[in-house]
Amino acid sequence: MKISVKTAAASMAILWLAGCNTSIKEEKPEATPQEEPLSIIFMIGDGMGVPQVSTAYYFGDSLPNFSRFKHIGLHKTSDKVYRITDSAAGATAFSIGEKTYKRAIGVSVDSIPKETILKRLQDDGYQTGLISLTTITHATPASFYAHVPDRDMHEEIAAQLIDAEVDFFAGGGKKFFDNREDGRNLFEELMGKNYHLDTLGLSETVKDKKNAYLLADDGIPSKIDGRKNYLSEATTMALEYFDQKQEPFFMMVEGSYIDWGGHAENAEMMISEVLDFDKTLGVVLDYVENNPNTLLVVTADHETGGVSIGKHYVVDDSTGKKTEVPEKVTVYFNSNQHSGELIPVFAAGQGAENFQGIYENNEIYHKMINTINQSK
């Protein structure tokens, strides 16, 4: 499928920076009461490669927030077995710091549960947050709190979320909490663990409680299906909630449907999701600029669709002659599957320079932990 719209004035450039980093064994951070530990915001545009980022420049109405980054790198996405990864193995590499197999959630290649960065930082006194457009049990968010051998074990993943003690989470997936084969009502269990729970909308957070928003039986709607500003609004709410508590935090925000647009070979869907992700990116960059003791890392687990941005033609129906339209471009899909492209990593805030270079996807975990150590 292909689609064309009018190009914006700006063009995309990804900086290929030198300084490939090797894996460095890090020490676990031990903050003292006098220190103010570094907060981390980790944003994942699922399925977002360089071509997807490029669409924000060709199809947006203003200069994308991606242009605000000065520190950019690239990561290699292959999992432990396959050159072409899936979201479960990709997100697990981010969350546990080692590569694993396709469909694995929070476990090693031998299916052994591994401590996630979310749990590690919780143990150091961090608040934690997860925001997704899909079910909160989907591969990417689940990889930060659950440990199961297969990503489709949604009911088991939901049950593990109850004990994960995440301070703020928002997404879909209600059906895995109250319409379960084992008869458990996880809504009641959440409220029993001092959660403010809302299944209808993004109501005001409660400072003295953890906050859970489960707003759809399955995923939140895509932009082309009528989603409003959920992603930016949920992110803003989480940041305000964390600020009230005045403790360091780790938060993962997923722009889930960039990937879905690639799988569907639906350029309109993909473009609208990239632009929505970029809008949310602006909210977070503003926060980082006003809170210098914060690190923002933005990347993707893989690219989806083998997307390229190419010439746009009009065809004369009578002659079949193609004529290039100089002020337009077209989105082309090479497939409806994941690709093996290197993936951009954008970083801002304290320690952003650590994310330059070209490295394996699991190195992002170690770079985040090492940046916390360096900030002391």
Rank of each mutant, 00 (worst) to 15 (best):
N179C: 10
R180Q: 10
E181M: 13
E181K: 14
D182M: 12
G183P: 12
G183R: 09
R184I: 15
R184E: 15
N185R: 14
E188I: 14
L190Y: 12
L190V: 10
M191C: 14
G192V: 00
Y195R: 05
H196N: 14
H196F: 15
L197E: 11
S203V: 07
E204V: 00
T205P: 11
D208W: 04
K209M: 13
K209C: 11
K210Q: 13
A212C: 14
A212Y: 08
Y213D: 02
Y213C: 06
L215K: 05
D218V: 07
G219E: 11
G219S: 11
I220C: 01
P221E: 05
S222D: 04
S222A: 11
I224G: 00
D225V: 02
D225A: 12
G226K: 03
G226H: 04
K228V: 08
N229Y: 07
Y230F: 15
Y230A: 01
L231Q: 07
S232Y: 06
A234W: 05
A234M: 03
T235M: 01
T235F: 01
T236Y: 00
A238W: 05
L239N: 07
L239P: 04
Y241P: 06
Q246H: 10
E247V: 05
P248Y: 11
P248I: 10
P248H: 08
P248F: 10
F249H: 08
F249R: 03
F249Q: 05
E254V: 09
E254H: 07
E254C: 02
Y257V: 01
I258A: 04
I258F: 01
D259Q: 05
D259W: 10
W260G: 00
W260H: 10
W260Q: 05
G261N: 08
G261R: 07
G262I: 11
G262E: 09
H263R: 11
A264S: 13
A267D: 09
M270R: 03
M270L: 15
E273Q: 06
